[in-house]
């Protein structure tokens, strides 16, 4: 019999197409698994409104469940809005090992001209890094460079 646990364990193998080390659960995008109206209902939420990976994630979920003979529906919800606080501990570690600095606790984005957050280098752990651009290779990342080892790296920026 298919249980919620088995669905969750299968979905553990579905990863963010742009950061293939993170599962959708690690990322906090997977919000719910429920059996309702004779069908499995999977709820996901986008990281950013225009994230082009959402459609792929939806397809990957359906494909993975189909491999196990399960038909499901995927729902996209906007509220509560995704925050980097939902990134799991194991997800943060996987990010760093992958060379992407995990989100630091940042000051309120609504404050203009606030001091910049220190983002340690994922390669040498130096705290002497500089932001190259607030916008990086994908919507969820900013672009940084380490001043000690020179490594250019992605920072999974904090969104609250």
């Amino acid at each position: 019999m298919v249980t919620k646990e088995s669905i969750l364990s299968w979905l553990d193998e579905v990863c963010d197409p742009e950061i293939p080390v993170l599962s959708l659960a690690d990322l906090g995008v997977l919000r719910g698994v429920e059996y309702l109206n004779d069908e499995w209902q999977i709820t996901i939420t986008p990281t950013y409104s225009g994230c082009p990976a959402m459609k792929t994630m939806e397809d990957d979920i359906l494909l993975k469940l189909k491999e196990h003979g399960v038909e499901a529906k995927v729902h996209l919800v906007l509220s509560p809005a995704w925050t980097t606080d939902w990134l799991s501990e194991s997800g943060r570690k996987k990010l760093k090992d992958f060379g992407i600095a995990p989100p630091e606790n940042e000051v309120d984005k609504s404050v203009l001209f606030a001091a910049q957050t220190v983002v340690p280098c994922p390669r040498c752990n130096s705290r002497e890094t500089k932001m190259v651009s607030q916008f990086g290779s994908t919507a969820c990342k900013a672009h940084y460079q380490c001043l000690i080892c020179s490594e250019p790296f992605d920072y999974f920026k904090c969104l609250k």
Binding site: P46, Y48, S49, V77, L78, S79, P80, A81, W82, T83, K109, S110, L159, K160
Partner: peptide
């Protein structure tokens, strides 16, 4: 809900 999602980006 749309405002909640979009506000974070707009900031």
């Amino acid at each position: 809900a749309i405002a909640e999602k979009s506000l974070k980006e707009t900031r």
